[in-house]
Nucleic acid binder design. Structure first.
Lengths: 128, 128
DNA sequence: CATAAGCCTTCCAGTCACTGGAAGGTCAAG
DNA sequence: CTTGACCTTCCAGTGACTGGAAGGCTTATG
C-alpha cells in the first residue's frame, strides 16, 4: 500500500502522513526504491490519528493515546484522564468563544449598519 | 511615554507592541536615543487593538477596523460587515467545538476509568 | 526508444500572532 | 564605577500542517 492509497483510505493528505512519520507517530517500511509501504498497523494508526485529531486532540495527546492504544496492558483510567483534560480545554474554549459571541452579538445588533459614521462597535473597541 | 508605560496602560506585552509596529499597525515616533515614544493616538490605537484582539478579531480585521476607526467619513455598515463575518466564524468554531464536546463527553461517560484495558474511547478512535 | 502522465522522494519556506532569548546600548541611583 | 532596569535589534521557535521546487520511478503510449 503506497501513500496515495492510504491517504484515500484514511482521508489524511499525503503531506500530513509524511509529517506524522517525521514526528515519529508512524514508521512505515520502505520499498527498495525508497517508496513508503503502509501495512495494516500503519493504516490503523493513521485512521486512529485522523479520528483523534478530528476530536481536537493535540499531537502530544495523540501520541499518548496511540501508545495506550497499542498497549494491551493499559488502564482505561489513563485514557479517560487524557480525554477529560481535553474535554475541559474544549469547555474553556467554548466558554471563551461564547463570551466573545455574546459581546459581539450585542454590538452588531446595536449597530445601524448604514452610511453614517456613528458606530457602537467602534465605540466599544475604543472604550470611549 | 515609553514602551513599558504604554504596555502597563494597555495590558499588551512590550513584545506585542513592537510586533504591531513591525507589521505596520502603529508607527510610534522615536527619541534621539532610538527609544520609541508613544503619543495619545498610539496609546488609543493599542487599546483599540487589545480590545479587538480580545474579541477574537484577526490581525487583518484589526487593521481594517483601525482604518475605519480613524476615518471620520466611515460608514457604520463597513464596520458591521466585518463584525458580522467574524461573528459567523465564531459561530462555526463554537459549533465545531460543541460537536467535539458532545462526542467526547459521551465517550468519557462511557469509560469506566479503571485499571482494565477495555476502553470505549479507544474503541471509538479505532472505530472498531 | 522517447516521452508524457502520474506517481514518489526530500527539503525549504510560509502560515498566525506572537514569544523567548541573545547581544548589546542607555539611563538613573548609590 | 557599577548595578539594575530600562531600551534596542535580530534570530529562532511555537502547532500542525501546507505549498512548492527539484528531481527520481513507473507505466502507457506513439
Amino acid at each position: 500500500m503506497n501513500i496515495a492509497e492510504v491517504s484515500r483510505a484514511t482521508g489524511l493528505p499525503a503531506k500530513t502522513i509524511r509529517y506524522y512519520e517525521d514526528i515519529g507517530l508512524i514508521t512505515p517500511a520502505r520499498q527498495e526504491n525508497g517508496y513508503r509501504v503502509f501495512r495494516d498497523t500503519d493504516q490503523h494508526k493513521l485512521a486512529f490519528l485522523a479520528r483523534a485529531r478530528s476530536l481536537g486532540f493535540g499531537i502530544d495527546a495523540c501520541r499518548d493515546l496511540l501508545t495506550l492504544y497499542t498497549d494491551q496492558d493499559r488502564a482505561s483510567a489513563d485514557v479517560k484522564a487524557i480525554a477529560q483534560e481535553h474535554l475541559s480545554e474544549i469547555d474553556s474554549k467554548i466558554a471563551a468563544l461564547q463570551s466573545m459571541r455574546d459581546t459581539l452579538g450585542e454590538l452588531v445588533d446595536a449597530c445601524a449598519g448604514d452610511n453614517r459614521p456613528d458606530c457602537p462597535i467602534l465605540k466599544d473597541l475604543a472604550r470611549q
